[in-house]
């Protein structure tokens, strides 16, 4: 009996120990994840003087200031970068959605000769890394005289083979009978696509939109290649620029204010739609 008691007790302690270790690990990683965010907000509200006076950085500040945020918008063109990115994100995403919805529709519902061959070719394009094609695209856009234009920024990223594939799979799950019924009722293909298929597949569409928005907001490589006029910088290039030439000598608090400002839109988006975004990424995202 006492044997049993001992085993029971041991099991209980083991459980408590396990729980503690588990939660400690999670909390530790949580701190590692969150701390940079805390640090950037903290640094952004320290005044230039007080930040530079701290040889040993302080973990709190007693005199928060918004001056850095004002600087971020007045001394460098943060507002411009911000606006550019919004335009870039919205236009790219909207155009891409149109292109991929049409393509997915053609692959999933329409009958034409050579469909399978074309689709196979499409799929094989998925294996091509963007690093390989970006060289020619750079030359192409330069030759077309589209450097430092929105057109040049946007054009190469308005198609995605992967998203066409994702959407096509989803479209195909809609029963054929619905299409036939619509045809019998005299619905045009276009109307059917936008009134029936798109609404039914709206979860996938939303997923793709979210993923594309994140991608656009964080785009760095292509914009860097194609723009050298700060008037067309996106936030990522803006940050790079601010880091190297902005604010005069090492105004880190102002830099951090800029960083906070450009991080906020996506974080807010994420906090609102975190379930959707996480579900979407686990279905169709790749990074890392």
């Amino acid at each position: 009996m006492s044997d049993y008691d001992q085993i029971s007790k041991k099991a209980r302690t083991a459980r408590i120990v396990r729980k503690t270790v588990t939660y400690s690990l999670l909390v530790l990683w949580g701190i590692i994840v969150l701390f940079p965010f805390y640090w950037m907000i903290l640094s952004s509200i320290k005044s230039y003087g007080s930040y530079n006076a701290e040889f040993t950085p302080k973990f709190i500040t007693t005199e928060p200031t918004m001056q850095n945020y004002i600087d971020a918008f007045t001394k460098v063109n943060l507002g411009r970068y911000f606006l550019n990115t919004i335009v870039f994100t919205v236009v790219t995403t909207a155009l891409m959605m149109l292109v991929i919805v049409f393509a997915a529709f053609a692959f999933s519902r329409l009958q034409f000769r050579g469909k399978n061959l074309v689709f196979t070719l499409f799929l094989s394009l998925m294996m091509i890394p963007s690093e390989l094609v970006i060289i020619t695209n750079f030359v192409t856009i330069t030759n077309w005289g589209l450097r430092n234009t929105f057109t040049g920024l946007i054009l190469p990223s308005v198609t995605s083979v992967f998203y066409i594939y994702l959407l096509k799979e989803n479209f195909e799950q809609i029963p054929d009978d619905l299409y036939k019924a619509a045809k019998v009722d005299g619905t045009s293909d276009m109307k059917y696509l936008f009134k029936v298929m798109v609404p039914i597949c709206s979860p996938t569409i939303v997923t793709v939109v979210i993923l594309k928005v994140i991608e656009c907001w964080n785009a760095y490589v292509w914009p860097r290649l194609i723009t050298d006029d700060p008037k067309y910088f996106l936030v990522s290039n803006g940050i790079s620029e601010i880091r190297e030439n902005g604010f005069g000598r090492e105004n880190i608090p102002a830099m951090m204010a800029a960083v906070v400002v450009i991080s906020i839109p996506l974080i807010v988006l994420f906090l609102i739609f975190h379930k959707k975004i996480m579900a979407g990424v686990s279905r169709g995202g790749t990074k890392g």
Partner: peptide, 8 residues
């Protein structure tokens, strides 16, 4: 995942 790599 959703933060700008350059910024962070």
């Amino acid at each position: 995942y959703v933060t700008n790599t350059l910024a962070v």
